[in-house]
Amino acid sequence: MWTKKTILVLVACLLSCGVMAGDTGGDLAIIVAKSSSLANFSSAELSKIFRAEKSKGPDGVKFVLAMRETGSDERAAALAGIYKMSEADYGKYFLQATFVGLVQSAPRQISSAAAMRQFVASVPGGIGYVRSSDVDDSVKAVTIDGHPPGDPAYPLKLKP
């Protein structure tokens, strides 16, 4: 178990080394089911999908969107990199999209990377995101504008 003492020791450790590692925060990987034919999105296409302006993939399967919980780093990266919206604007956007009949509701909210992977792997059309370090064999990370997560030109970055 992670106790307060353990965390304090870890903080002391980090203080002593002065955060010399230069953590970049990592990339936000867009994930789909491993069996999905989706392999790449353009930035504009990704934005349209997450804004629910594009509802189906080329195989005719309806996208089922998932977002991380409010306050998570991954959600902040998605709002900044995909939606280009603040949290408040995101809420207003989906309420208005419901009002004009564009969507039934806002994307599903999921509270851990493991649950996100499981959702994407098991729900037809499921699409979500995790830290690139959280991608495992159960899902597939798609490329954005031809760049895979980890590529310096990959556009979706987590805040350092």
């Binding site: 870890l10 903080v11 955060v19 780093d73 509270s111 851990s112 493991a114 350092p160």
Partner: peptide, 19 residues
């Protein structure tokens, strides 16, 4: 930065618990 790092590690713990 340290607080952010602790936050991320808490997130990892949450993830591990969820798994």
């Amino acid at each position: 930065k340290l607080v952010d790092r602790v936050d991320r590690q808490e997130s990892e713990i949450k993830d591990l618990k969820a798994q």
